[in-house]
Design a binder for these strands. Structure first.
Lengths: 250, 250
DNA sequence: TGTCAAATTAATGTCAGACAATTAGAAACC
DNA sequence: GGTTTCTAATTGTCTGACATTAATTTGACA
């Protein structure tokens, strides 16, 4: 646990990196207690605030947790799937929104990955998963729904589809792809007709999984991708045109 | 940008959450400068060290970057694909290693996702991607290679396969699945025979992509999954047995 | 002697104020 | 006009102190 040679970065970043390496490499194991802040300060020959900044960096990545009191301190944290989900989703969402990733690219990735779930989900989905999917289909068909609520339900539907694989690693990896699309989807104004189309395709997917028919699920997802892309392209084209006009008036 | 109602957590965590929300919601846009630390301290009615801890939390997630000097400060960071990769890989690796995810589960997820890349990669791979894959195959066939170097080359091969899709979102999402498997793969001792088998399958995948034959690529990847699983199961069974013995002697 | 309450202690959380280091831009000088 | 120097703004770091929290020990009392 010694400081890295690069002196250009912050001390707190160096210390955080050193401790992170120790955790990743297995030198520090889950639930192991780190030395108290004062001791760390001494070891790294820095002040306590600097150590604290380093620890906060690690806490932000859920690598450690801290506890107050006599037997408190910083402990190596067993990162939970929930924490990992949430981090992955935040990062994915920002990555997409900040880097001008096209609707096409994001959509393609999302459906390619979802289709990878279809065979596993067809084989393993529980009655619970099916029930969730049916419930979301039903919700999506209700007339009073806002576009945002419709999108949220859409995400819930797809999450159930992914969870149907019974593979938590799949759920984790897909979380980013599915959830990060939501802001892009939220740009779309769903007409009654397009909603009907989507619900029909969702129902088709659900039916296929109920019948444990991977091929049919794949087909329905392809259709859904095609249709989503169609909806998205309209919106994106309009936005691009309005941006163009704005630039022209400058 | 005001503090959330929950008072149970750290002030620095609350402030970090408030600023993060402002970034995610778009209130703060890319490259926008945050108020200086003293001002933030005043706004949130906390001290500067507390603000700094909050900013370090955000910096750890690449949400902001800081700059010293007269026109310095904290700026909303456009998170790059590289930064996102690296975070995703760290999280994925720890998630797998700390939560006793079985080799089977991880392997299944990885190959399910990689197979999702096959059709796209067959359609779009460049000559560069093929060259990288061939080069890695060649490296893997060299006799003096350590197991770790073999694994590293394996990862490089699969990364090229994924990058062949030409879809950066796919590359990002897959990075976690591919790289996080490496520690698990590193447990395996590759015999000359198993290496030969793997290189043959890698070559088969490469040939399929060169021929733009998605079906053949899928078949080869299935074979590779089957074989990897076979190798992994042996190792994991042995490890489980030795753990069992350890527990029995307690 | 057993039980409950109070004191102790060790740790993190927060604060205040100071100084160092860095950097952009303004001012001064040639 | 171009170059150098100065200045100001901002983050980085340190010191020392106090507040808060929670486990442990101590001690009083039944």
């Amino acid at each position: 646990m010694k400081t890295s040679p690069k002196t250009s970065t912050d001390l707190s970043a160096q210390i955080a990196a050193a401790i992170r390496d120790a955790i990743v490499s297995g030198d520090l194991i889950v639930n192991q207690r780190l030395p108290c802040e004062a001791e760390l300060a001494e070891q790294f020959t820095v002040s306590r605030p600097t150590v604290r900044e380093a620890l906060k960096r690690l806490a932000a990545q859920s690598l450690i947790r801290t506890q107050r009191g006599a037997t408190g301190g910083a402990f190596v944290n067993r990162i939970s799937f929930e924490e990992a989900y949430s981090q992955h989703i935040t990062t994915s969402t920002l990555l997409l929104s900040m880097n001008a990733v096209s609707f096409e690219t994001a959509c393609e990735a999302r459906y390619a990955l979802e289709r990878a779930c279809a065979p596993l989900s067809a084989a393993r989905r529980s009655a619970d998963h099916l029930a969730t999917m049916r419930a979301e289909c039903h919700r999506q068909a209700q007339p009073g729904l806002t576009d945002e609520a419709f999108c949220a339900s859409d995400v819930a539907f797809h999450r159930a589809l992914v969870d149907g694989t019974g593979n938590p690693v799949m759920s984790y990896q897909l979380a980013g792809a599915v959830e990060a699309m939501q802001p892009l989807m939220n740009m779309i104004t769903f007409t009654a007709r397009s909603r009907g189309e989507i619900v029909a395709l969702h129902t088709q997917v659900t039916d296929a999984l109920e019948a444990r028919d991977a091929g049919a699920a794949d087909t329905a997802l392809c259709e859904l991708e095609r249709y989503t892309l169609h909806l998205g392209r309209d919106v994106m084209a309009k936005r691009a045109k309005s941006r163009e006009n704005l630039t022209a008036t400058h």
